[in-house]
Simulated assay, not measured.
Amino acid sequence: MTAHNWIDLAQDADTGIETLRAHFEGHAYDPHWHDSFLVGVTEQGVQQFNCRRARHHSTPGQVFLLEPGEIHDGNAPTPEGFTYRMLYLDPHWLEREVSAVFEEAPANSHLSFTTTLTSDPRLALATHQAFQSLHAGELRIVRQSALDQLLERLTGQLQWRQRYREDPRLPLVAHKAREYLHAHLQQDVGMDELALATGVDRFRLTRAFKSAFGLPPHAYLVQLRLARARHLLARGAQPADVATDLGFADQSHLGRWFVRAYGLTPAAYRKRCSNLPDR
């Protein structure tokens, strides 16, 4: 991270929602994904990112919406960089909170955003206010009211979508490989092993997987481990222990990947989310 870039991260104790405000100039972060719903608003500058096979440019007041698992990157195409604030919403929390809005969820479906970028001033305001109340640790009733207002505005951007296993765009071999990686994320999985588990050769597997999920299997496994690392660090686990548990070579190996994806070190992330000192 350069001297001009900064990140301010916190976590709400009641909901587990992470709040992040950051500024980047030039390159911000490599392609990665989260297992949370991301709702953010650009404050200043132009935030350029690739997602859903398209390049987006978020300008002040625009709201960007990313689903769990959606690969995205980030950079500043203009010299002054960009500043944004963002909420990380747990999928189970979000589905529970919006259940009152939908009479009944369709079978084998999950929540999805209708768009990646929107110019909705009321949603932008609700996002800003929810961020402010959570990040500043306001009274519980203030935080809950702000989140209710955000959810009310957010439902206009939500829809139910069939789960990926029913999506004909995702070949069965890619689905099988994805499930195998999730089940063996702590192991030193090789391509031969993954190919054997899916019943195709390594080259067909790589093409199918990248076509379905936007990353080759090895890169997906790294992102899967990083998402798990975030959870463990937020609960107070030591970076060295997390690196060992998730199959990274050592703590510095985890650190290099973590910084590239999230813009801060595992130790810094742990400290800001768990409020626990390093040993």
Score class of each variant (00 low, 15 high):
Asn275Tyr: 10
Val101Trp: 15
Leu246Met: 10
Arg143Thr: 14
Asn5Phe: 08
Tyr269Thr: 08
Gly255Thr: 15
Gln157Trp: 11
Ser274Cys: 12
Leu196Thr: 14
Ser252Gly: 03
Arg53Val: 04
His32Arg: 04
Thr127Asn: 01
Ala219Trp: 08
Glu166Asp: 12
His175Gly: 15
Asp8Glu: 14
Phe113Asn: 02
Ile7Gln: 00
Trp33Met: 04
His110Val: 10
Ser36Asp: 11
Gly255Gln: 15
Arg270Tyr: 03
Phe64Cys: 03
Gln149Lys: 02
Arg153Pro: 08
Val46Leu: 05
Thr155Phe: 10
Ser252Ile: 11
Leu170Met: 05
His175Gln: 15
Val142Arg: 00
Thr15Glu: 02
Thr78Met: 09
Arg230Gln: 15
Ala10Ile: 08
Leu170Asp: 03
Leu139Phe: 11
Leu233Pro: 02
Ser112Gln: 09
Phe213Cys: 09
Thr116Cys: 10
Arg169Gln: 14
His56Met: 06
Arg122Asn: 13
Thr78Pro: 04
Ser133Glu: 14
Pro121Ser: 11
Glu166Cys: 09
Phe64Asp: 01
Gly81Ala: 04
Ser274Phe: 12
Lys176Gln: 14
Leu226Asp: 06
His27Ser: 06
Arg52Tyr: 12
Gly255Ser: 15
Ile141Gly: 02
Ala3Trp: 07
Leu172Met: 08
Arg202Gly: 09
Ala261Met: 03
Leu9Lys: 02
Ser211Gly: 13
Gln251Tyr: 03
Asp35Ile: 07
Thr42Lys: 01
Leu139Arg: 12
Arg161Asn: 01
Glu43Ala: 07
Pro266Tyr: 13
Leu117Thr: 09
Leu232Tyr: 03
His128Gly: 06
Met86Pro: 04
Thr114Arg: 02
Leu170Arg: 00
Arg202Tyr: 07
Gln162Met: 11
Asn108Gly: 10
Leu226Tyr: 05
Met86Ala: 04
Arg235Met: 06
Asn5Val: 04
Leu246Trp: 14
Glu103Pro: 07
Asp12Ser: 00
Arg163Tyr: 02
Pro168Lys: 01
Phe49Ser: 00
Asp188Gln: 13
Arg96Ala: 13
Arg270Thr: 06
Ala219Asn: 07
Thr83Trp: 02
Glu80Asp: 13
Arg161Gly: 04
Thr78Leu: 15
Arg85Asp: 01
